[in-house]
Amino acid sequence: MVPPLALDIDGTLTTADGRIDPRVFERLPTWDAPVVFATGKAFPYPVALATFLGLPIRVVAENGGVVHADGETSIRANPAAPQAAAEAFLERGGSLGWGTDETVNRWRETEVAAAPDADESLLRSVAASTDDVDLIDTGYAFHLTSPTVSKGDGLRLVAEALELAPDAFVAIGDSENDVSTFDVVGRSYAVANADQAATTAADVVLEESFADGTMAVLDTLHTAANR
């Protein structure tokens, strides 16, 4: 049988220009094992993706800050410290960088995201000034988040709800926020466009980038399961 999957979204299920690869809609609905979306995106995004794929909603969102499995949503971090850090960043002349687009942070419940062209040095200075905030660079955003949560811990909760061991999962990702997921699963893959943290932590670094890499892994797993 094919293994359950823990899949990042941005850079992993997308094309180079940020669109969901259409093959995702062909392959994942027929995957004969649980699929968990583990992402830095706000909770509604992976919920919508699972819904439109016709999959059960199994989600680790906001880098582990929000987890949904077995019909229940768990808010696992207090947003007060990340929000205070974001306010301090703005007071010191920083900009979150999204312009008038409020959708990036509108539905976030445990963290604050800044655009990838935001002032990184200032963000890191602000985050370093408190023990209650971590800064995660996913390549698509800087996340001011709680150090008490991670994608890996979130996946453990989903696996428990599914009565599966975390090491039963195969994970695919592209960023430093996927390292904690790679640490708890049985096998991990970094797509070729992954950052150094992800490629160092992964069991396998793929030759293919973005969703091409993910599709290659799914092909390999499917072939192995049907031998």
Rank of each mutant, 00 (worst) to 15 (best):
E120G: 00
L218Q: 06
E91N: 13
R187A: 14
A61V: 02
F37C: 06
D119H: 13
T110H: 08
F89M: 01
D137N: 15
A190K: 01
V36Q: 08
E163S: 13
S129E: 14
G99S: 09
D117F: 10
P22T: 07
L206N: 02
L122G: 07
Y45K: 07
A50G: 03
G154C: 05
A115Q: 00
V184G: 07
L13A: 06
Q196D: 15
S175L: 03
A127C: 05
A165T: 06
V35S: 05
A192Q: 05
P147G: 09
T15Q: 12
V67R: 09
L218I: 03
V179L: 11
A88T: 10
D212V: 01
A61G: 06
W107P: 00
T223S: 07
A50K: 04
S146A: 08
P116Y: 12
Y140A: 13
N193Y: 10
D134S: 15
L164M: 14
L53A: 12
F210Q: 03
I75H: 10
N177D: 11
N177T: 06
G94W: 11
V170K: 01
S188R: 00
V191S: 06
R187K: 13
A194K: 08
R106M: 00
V104Y: 13
L96F: 07
R187G: 03
T181Y: 02
V179S: 12
T220V: 02
A77G: 05
F43M: 02
V179W: 12
A81H: 09
A88G: 01
M215V: 09
G186H: 09
R58P: 02
D32N: 15
F210C: 02
P29I: 04
A42F: 01
I20M: 13
F210A: 01
A85G: 11
A216W: 11
E160C: 04
R187M: 15
P34S: 10
A159T: 09
E87P: 00
P4E: 09
I172A: 07
D167Q: 09
L49S: 06
R76T: 10
D219V: 00
E91I: 00
H68E: 15
T51K: 03
P3T: 01
T145S: 14
T73L: 12
G152F: 05
A81R: 10
V2C: 04
A202H: 04
R124S: 07
D119M: 11
P4N: 07
S150L: 01
D101T: 00
T15H: 10
P56M: 08
K41L: 11
P34Q: 10
F37A: 03
E87T: 04
P82S: 11
Y140G: 07
H222C: 01
Y140S: 12
D131T: 14
A141Y: 14
E26W: 03
A224C: 04
F142M: 13
D219F: 00
I172N: 10
T138Y: 13
E62Y: 03
W98D: 04
D70R: 09
A84Y: 00
V35K: 06
A81K: 09
V47T: 14
V59G: 06
L157R: 15
L49F: 04
P79L: 04
A161G: 15
E160Q: 14
D153G: 08
F25I: 08
H143W: 06
G173R: 09
D178H: 06
G139D: 11
V179I: 11
D131F: 08
H222A: 12
L221W: 03
T214R: 03
T30K: 15
F169S: 12
G11W: 13
V170H: 02
W98Q: 04
V60Y: 08
A33N: 06
